[in-house]
Amino acid sequence: MNKLIKYVLYDIVRNKIIVAYTLFLLLLSIGLFQLGGSADKGLLSLLNLVLLTVPLISIVFATTHFYNSYEFMELLVSQPIRRSRIFMSEYLGVALSLSAAFLVGVGAPVLFFAPSTTGLFLVVTGVLITFVFVALAFLASVITRDKAKGIGIALLLWFYFALIYDGLVLLILYAFSDYPLEQTTLALTALNPVDLGRVMVLLHLDVSAMMGYTGALYKSIFGSLWGIGIALAVMLLWVIVPLLSSKRIFQKRDL
């Protein structure tokens, strides 16, 4: 498996988009930390941008890469290797290289300007989000053979998780404001990896306490080791479920 990843990585690392992505994140992070004044403020602004750009770039890049690698995968499929191995290698290759770009572009500045647990959470969240959206990208890619369609689905997925979902949640919360919604909101948050990541970081920033009783409730949930563990587990589910589903489809489909 690692041999294959090596070759997938060879290919991606030299991809100019990855380099551009790294530089983009790097400039953004440094700029925000310089502008923001305090480390916390910098982290907050960074969080917003990370949660918007990382999913978008991850999902679009991974989808494009998947379609561009079709013939390569064909070549590999004619070789004596399991399809699942090819698929996982592709996945890990893309996810790892995007994560590496994120670690260099965001992780390093965070380490330098805001070395704190919150910073760590931001970086971990960013990496997890990358893995989630690459998995979603692969799912979009195996659903349809048509590249344009696949990228369309990927963009829709991003649009849904980054924007539409929150709008729907707001609508639901508003419509059912007479009901006790604490638990429901928690569940709704878990159903969107972007929200989950945002809440995980936010609750470790100082602003969390200001969210009043409900905020404190969530903080007590997410703040405990158990809560962090569960949040991370849900996040991993967000990686595993789409990844395994797409792998299953990939194994059964024609190339």
């Binding site: 918007l52 809440v199 009783y213 969530y218």
Partner: peptide, 18 residues
């Protein structure tokens, strides 16, 4: 909104809210 439905703090700083 937060005043009316406190659980919506969970969406703080989301893109949609901005």
């Amino acid at each position: 909104l937060v005043e009316r439905v406190p659980p919506s703090v969970m969406l703080m700083r989301s893109f949609m809210v901005d």
